[in-house]
Design a protein around this nucleic acid. Structure first.
Ligand SMILES: [Mn+2]
Ligand SMILES: [Mn+2]
Ligand SMILES: [Zn+2]
Ligand SMILES: [Zn+2]
Lengths: 118, 118
DNA sequence: AAGTTTTTGCAACTGATTTGCATAAATTAT
DNA sequence: ATAATTTATGCAAATCAGTTGCAAAAACTT
């Protein structure tokens, strides 16, 4: 159920949002346990969002959307996906610093098209 | 005191780390209040780090280091600063999506030089 | 020194997430 | 199909970073 909800959404969802729509069927603790299980089994992936209005929440999206980046609208709080990762090769940075980069997380914030025209 | 500690550190620091070194002088709540004040007055800036070992914590660095990005070592948990922001112009992305990008946050994770050679 | 404002410590609270525990549901063995 | 065993669930309590109320302490004004 939880997996389907996430797969059928065009937006990353947080635990509360998933719970809202199934509160008659599932307890919040069960939602969290389900999300944990799904993430451990690589069916979904998550990232933290630090939103000035809504605070810090973890958002989940289906795994095939793994390593996708989003732009977060600070007005409507929706995510706009970015098709191509704007981060290119880190080779020169790695060579220069000796650091081996394994993962990167990028969050863009601003105003979506709709919210600008208001 | 808090501001000095942050300015004199080569690493972003979290509330706990700052508190550790002044626990005889300051209460943790006072540290948090100080950090809030300093950030509101743009003397420091902060970012969230989601570390698989240490959990989610907010790290603070002096404001002149604002808009700096770091690579976080997953072994020693230290930050290596990146001198030049690897993110170039978002103009084409903005034009294509209509989204207006105001801020961006980037976290790189991996293994620092030292930790690789162990 | 007395009155006023600001800062502090401490404890209680918050909100997201996790956990213990006893029960319910699903599986497997008899 | 029935009893024994395993797994999933609800609910409440715990956790953890961070915040807040409140009364006492410190700093500032008069
Ligand atoms: Mn990327
Ligand atoms: Mn940048
Ligand atoms: Zn919007
Ligand atoms: Zn390291």
């Amino acid at each position: 159920m939880i997996l389907e909800k996430i797969q059928n959404s065009d937006q990353p969802l947080c635990a509360q949002q998933i719970y809202e729509e199934m509160k008659e069927a599932l307890d919040l603790a069960t939602v969290y346990r389900g999300l944990k299980y799904l993430e451990e089994n690589s069916e979904i992936s998550s990232f933290l969002l630090d939103c000035s209005e809504r605070g810090v929440e973890r958002y989940y999206s289906s795994f095939f959307a793994h390593h996708k980046h989003y732009m977060h609208c600070m007005a409507c709080h929706r995510f706009t996906p970015i098709d191509t990762c704007p981060l290119g090769g880190f080779e020169s940075l790695e060579k220069k610093t000796g650091f081996r980069i394994d993962e990167h997380f990028l969050t863009l914030k601003g105003l979506c098209k709709k919210c600008q025209n208001k």
